[in-house]
């Protein structure tokens, strides 16, 4: 997976952090799937978004480690390692996917689209008049809420 890109930067902490990272993803997946219930697709999309955020966090973490290494080696910081670039791009794609999918489908905006086209004007209710033939067929209506 994404973690395949990880090079041994600081071997002392590596194993520990990978373990924690995997655990975090697992917990996130479980939470999402349990909570979303029937809407499994929406849950999956949300999980993709969370994965993207985690990858972004991981990229930040690696950058910090890298800078720590540079300080020890007493070298200048020029640019973050290629692995960080790749992780940021992956996280961008994943978060974009989630942002487009999670809130739901797009609504039509074109005036001539099949769903959106105007079929009737609203009745001009502000200018409503009451002296029409309907008064010959007045329905039997009784209001009973005044007593209660």
């Amino acid at each position: 997976m994404v973690l395949g890109f990880m090079k041994p930067i600081n071997s002392k902490f590596k194993a520990n952090w990978i373990f924690l990272f995997y655990k975090a993803i697992e917990v996130a997946f479980k939470l999402i799937f349990l909570r979303s219930g029937g809407r499994e697709m929406a849950g999956a999309d949300m999980a993709v978004g969370i994965l993207g955020a985690l990858v972004l966090a991981h990229a930040a973490y690696i950058t910090i480690l890298y800078r720590g290494d540079l300080k020890i080696k007493e070298e200048e910081f020029v640019r973050p390692p290629i692995q960080v670039w790749i992780e940021v791009l992956i996280s961008l794609v994943l978060c974009l996917w989630a942002a487009l999918r999670v809130p739901g489908t797009f609504l039509p905006i074109l005036p001539d689209s099949k769903e959106n086209r105007v079929v009737a004007l609203p009745a001009n209710l502000d200018f409503m008049t009451f002296n029409h033939r309907g008064k010959l067929f007045a329905p039997e209506l009784e209001a009973k809420f005044t007593k209660s």
């Binding site: 009451f130 309907g134 008064k135 007045a138 329905p139 039997e140 209506l141 009784e142 209001a143 809420f145």
Partner: peptide, 19 residues
Amino acid sequence: AIAAMDCHALEAAKECIGA
């Protein structure tokens, strides 16, 4: 109330307006 007036059910409309 407005719908009842439009149907000429004036008593029912009056009750709604009273409420």
